[in-house]
Amino acid sequence: MSAALEVRELAKSYGGEPVVRGVGFTVEAGECFGLLGPNGAGKTTTLRLCLGLTAPDAGGIRLLGHDVPTQARDARRRVGVVPQLDSLDPDFTVAENLLVYGRYFGLGDAAIAARIPALLGFAGLSGRSDARIHTLSGGMKRRLTLARALINDPDLLVLDEPTTGLDPQARHLIWERLRQLMQEGKTLLLTTHFMEEAERLCTRLLIMDAGRVITLGSPRELIAAHIEPEVVEVHGPRCDAWAGQRAQGLASRVESVGETVFCYTQRADPLLESIAAHPRLTYLHRRANLEDVFLKLTGRDLRD
């Protein structure tokens, strides 16, 4: 399999402030690759650079065999984009949104019209082709945006936070559709804040912070490499004191955040026994997940 996207030593500054600093990664054809990072990590800028919407200060990008940004327009013929912000045309119906967008790819009206029923079916919007955009729910709008991104039958789909702001039902439906697209052999590149989303969908992912790549691998590899397999979250009165006296010896890593103590461990049994001796403490015992990795690597500080 050849690479769908190759990024080397990418750098971009805004007003002297570096936003992307030496980012490099390769997205293989047919995989779902995730870009993760807190707000301001440089994810959206990296996507914009990869699509050739802005020029890098340094580094190289090859997208579907084309040099970016010099041949970005040629590369985008085979790319579909689901942007973070709704950019559907409010003056148009569902079908008109697809028709008008297809024309930007140089497609003829008849060719676009022939594709619309299947795309609406895929988006779960059959029978809605004449609906106005403002009558659609958030989930429907996102699915229509996904259908719009597929108007040119792209090889690579770029999705910037595809499920942000959606309820769980709508989110699961989008995930289902994205899996279907992977089955069809499409390559997916997505950014997300939802670790659950990344863990479920991504074959590989990259965590970035402050414009740099922190780590790269499959969700399972990252969890295995960076974090203990089991987590016990403890709440309750004086849990800090318990953490200081007891937990330190029983867990490989203990983190106190506000009213909660996070204990990361290879084996949770000794911790659970100790908690049982303190009846006023409550706890949640779970397997370590990508969110634990993410928080360990990027910290718990708020980002704005």
Partner: peptide, 14 residues
């Protein structure tokens, strides 16, 4: 406001 231009620029348009 509507981000219409942004959407167009994601297509093979300059």
């Amino acid at each position: 406001g509507q981000k219409t231009w942004d959407a167009i620029l994601n297509a093979p348009m300059d």
